[in-house]
Design a protein around this nucleic acid. Structure first.
Lengths: 162, 162
DNA sequence: GCATCTCTCGTCCAGTTGGTCGAAAATAAT
DNA sequence: ATTATTTTCGACCAACTGGACGAGAGATGC
């Protein structure tokens, strides 16, 4: 039989590597040819693992959204130190990941967003992390603050991040 | 001479109407044909006002970014009331405008973002508004908080907006 | 009337798109 | 060696892309 033993795992790897490409160029901005080239395979091979471009994009988005869940957080140190460490982790890919998320949500109504499984998982994951740092009371509030700061950092090109 | 007397004004109107279409479908997701149809004109007519698709997109982005600048803020009432009113204004189009901005910034390096004219104008405009409400000291901090809350609202489909 | 200007339009082009398909290569089981 | 299965590939398709272009429509100045 074929080389690849765990097809699902391989598919996951492809999706993750494609995610970076998507967030860099946008869903409509890349073609299956370009993605395949970037992945070092032929277009047909890519189609062998993902039936459509849409399926690949969905898989990519879900991989990205669930990635932060596995990020280990250091439970030592002060709340401030933990938050600062978390923000450094998030900051590294904030722009590209948010770009992908906004692409994913494009055109969706608030109702569709609210009931979107991938969004629910990713949001509750973030809230969970916050709860573990600042407690359930201030989790939502803190997440909002972190989001805002990261956002402003990104929008100002990192200049305002003092 | 032609029907349209104020070309620049007309161009601006076109750009603004195109902006909604861009944020709905993404830069690469729409073609000049589709935009022209949406604007009720032929593709060639559209090309008469904007030399390239890129030029149209830039004009659309700048219109959107500068639009908030003209939003009058009620200087009466408490800081909280002013902030709440401002947030209601922003919330209405937050998702689509942010989508457009992320599209605009896609692939740009932090340096490019920091030196981008449209971003500088829009950021300083926002900061200005905040200064007028909470004073220069807390302007940046408040903007960050507002951004974060709006962001979380959008990402949760408005469910978390308590 | 006529020339002149902006504006609009349909048509054309080469290049790209997502997706299909049949064949070839590669692997494994017998 | 001969199957059977999976993976890869290049060629192909209709549809669409951004953009170019010349012709005509509408309005104005003379």
């Amino acid at each position: 039989m074929p080389k690849i033993i765990d097809r699902d795992k391989y598919r996951c790897e492809l999706a993750e590597r494609a995610a970076g490409f998507f967030s860099k160029h946008g869903y409509a901005g890349v073609g299956m040819r370009g993605i395949a080239d970037h992945l070092g395979m032929s277009k047909s091979a890519l189609y062998h693992y993902f039936p459509t471009k849409e399926a690949l994009f969905l898989a990519s988005t879900k991989v990205v959204m669930s990635r932060t869940a596995g990020a280990p957080i250091d439970t030592m140190g002060s709340q401030e130190a933990q938050l600062a460490a978390l923000m450094d982790v998030l900051r590294a890919n904030f722009g590209s990941e948010l770009t992908l998320v906004f692409d994913y949500l494009r055109g969706k109504t608030p109702e569709e967003i609210a009931s979107d499984e991938a969004m629910q998982i990713s949001l509750s994951t973030y809230l969970n992390i916050m709860e573990r740092i600042v407690g359930p009371e201030r989790a939502s509030q803190t997440l909002s603050a972190v989001m805002g700061e990261l956002m402003l950092d990104y929008l100002s090109g990192g200049v305002l991040s003092d």
